[in-house]
Design a protein around this nucleic acid. Sequence first.
DNA 1: ATGGTGGACGATCCA
Length: 267
Amino acid sequence: MKIATWNVNSIRARADRVEAWLQRSDVDVLAIQETKAKDENFPWDMFESNGYEVAHFGLNQWNGVAIASRVGLDDVERTFPGQPHFGKTEETTAAEARAIGATCGGVRIWSLYVPNGRAVNDPHMPYKLEWLKILKDQAAGWVEADPQLNLALMGDFNIAPRDEDVWDIDWFRAQNATHITEPERAAFQAFLDAGFQDLSRPYTEGPGVYTYWDYTQLRFPKKQGMRIDFALGSPALAARVTGAHIDREERKGKGASDHAPVIVELD
DNA sequence: ATGGTGGACGATCCA
């Protein structure tokens, strides 16, 4: 079984590329982020005509997550319990479309689009950190309740956990950039400390291995990227991993997303 | 002057 995660940066703008990629990648499950669409604009037919069931959570032109599966798609959840809302309270704001879960071929899959902190001192930064903490607490609880649970937390974490996960750590620090700060890295590390494993890194070791390249400044041809997309697995799922890769080819050419798919193979 | 790119929306926000 092959599972994958991919921030597509608009499912409508990327529909043809996503279709072609599904056909050549042969994945069983694809967790998608940044669909940037409401349900009424989602390309349901494209997935179904290629043999995939698909569940989508999209409220407006921002965010949006989906799971496509050809090995079943059950018990769909939109938002995780306690998912923080940006600003004020649940009474005055709605949770953003950043998390969708489903059980596919015996694996509990979550497609996650972690909030962008925007800037070190922006109010979106504490929102991001709280969002990750609640997710980690929830996910740890699911595994504690069922230690054999095959759980995959997949998506765009908007964090580069190690210095080697960005093309020049000194440049990032000089910019006072997000994604590499200590609190963000601690929020990521908390998943590992809770027993989750990074499923792709052992098979895609760096340095110089990335999942995202900014559209500007010729970042892709200059090999100046960031590793910010991950599949984290519960212990039972991690024990099944036989390989992983980052499909850097998909970042090439006109009309590419700025993120590449990350694929994990299970026995 | 500098987001120099790209997407959605609608004349601006987001990444």
